[in-house]
């Protein structure tokens, strides 16, 4: 391989176009190195942002062949190998307004972040002049979520956000909610969790894009599960998401397996389910569901129920 072609999406505030740049191939370089080389040697108008060069400032995220990466910590060799190509397409992050070329506008995101009250609501155990005591175990709970560098990769990759910019919160915002909800120094976890719940917490598609792409490997999906559990413990059980989850919990306990016939009713209630009659008839016609079918209890269901009993008394270590 002698040259690498970067096809970059340009935008000048009015028009959009793709522009190709050819660079001599050099081994062991980062994507940021290539972008810098283009700007300094081929085209001073190419606009992108970068600052720290070592994955702590979060400035340089871009999309390559549809996937978001931090330019500074992404090896060009790895990209070429992954996509089995000598030609890469670079675009600005998805789900952000674009300012110019690869530079996106963070202002609306930071504005939205305020919804979850992304700051410590100090508990009475602390004092401005004395600080807090916090156990090493409690610190460990906030160690990973505070790794977030606000790079926007999770927003770019989020399946729900791509369909619904307004009715859902970016994964990094949910991470902020989580980070304070589990902080032993915070007096009011509910105040971080409730806005997340009201802004579509249960709408996550479970696509796992955020956990896959996060450059800091934050377990965003696991955090989401925690926020949901916590919202249920706050008494927020009467919504489609929670009812749907409970339908599974209950079915497994009673029979071991899911009852697809009763699932919509349990999730949505009687009235909404009636709206699904055409859908149901369609399935019945093809034999996909049998309204008269009642799953039998699985072999060993008593054991399953004992596991449930045991789980009730345990919090996951």
């Amino acid at each position: 391989m002698d040259t690498v072609t970067l096809r970059i999406k340009r935008y000048d505030g009015v028009k959009e176009w793709y522009q190709e740049y050819q660079l001599p191939y050099e081994k062991g370089k980062t994507l940021l190195y290539s972008l810098t080389k283009i700007r300094e040697e081929l085209d001073p108008t190419l606009t992108f942002s970068a600052a720290c060069r070592h994955a702590i400032c979060g400035s340089c995220a871009v999309r390559v062949n549809g996937n978001a990466f931090l330019a500074c910590k992404t090896s060009l060799d790895q990209l070429l190998e992954t996509f089995e190509t000598e030609r890469l397409t670079l675009e600005p992050l998805n789900n952000f307004p674009v300012i110019r070329d690869l530079v996106v506008d963070w202002e609306p995101k930071l504005e939205r972040m305020k919804a979850v009250r992304p700051w410590l609501i100090p508990s009475e155990d602390g004092d401005p002049s004395e600080g807090f005591r916090q156990s090493p175990e409690d610190f460990r709970k906030i160690a990973s979520p505070t790794d977030c560098i606000l790079c926007g990769i999770c927003s770019s990759e989020c399946g729900q956000l791509s369909l619904n910019q307004e009715g859902y919160l970016d994964p990094f915002i949910l991470n902020k909610a989580y980070r304070f909800a589990v902080d032993s120094r915070d007096a009011a976890p509910e105040e971080h969790i409730r806005p997340a719940l009201e802004k579509g917490l249960w709408k996550c598609l479970h696509c796992m894009e955020c956990v896959t792409k996060c450059p800091k490997e934050i377990d965003l999906a696991g955090e989401n599960a925690y926020l949901r559990q916590a919202s249920i413990q706050m008494g927020e059980r009467d919504n489609k998401g929670a009812r749907h989850a409970y339908a599974f919990v209950e079915d497994v306990k009673s029979k071991g397996r899911l009852n697809e016939v009763t699932l919509p009713m349990k999730t949505e209630g009687f009235v909404s389910t009636m709206n699904r009659i055409p859908f149901a008839l369609r399935l019945i016609r093809k034999g996909k569901i049998n309204p008269l079918h009642m799953p039998r209890e699985v072999e060993g269901i008593e054991g399953v129920r004992k596991i449930y009993e045991h789980a009730q008394g345990v919090k996951e270590p």
């Binding site: 949901r228 249920i232 989850a245 599974f248 789980a311 996951e316």
Partner: peptide, 10 residues
């Protein structure tokens, strides 16, 4: 992918 939203130990 739902039960952990109620109880991940379970």
């Amino acid at each position: 992918s739902h039960i952990q939203d109620v109880d991940d130990f379970l």
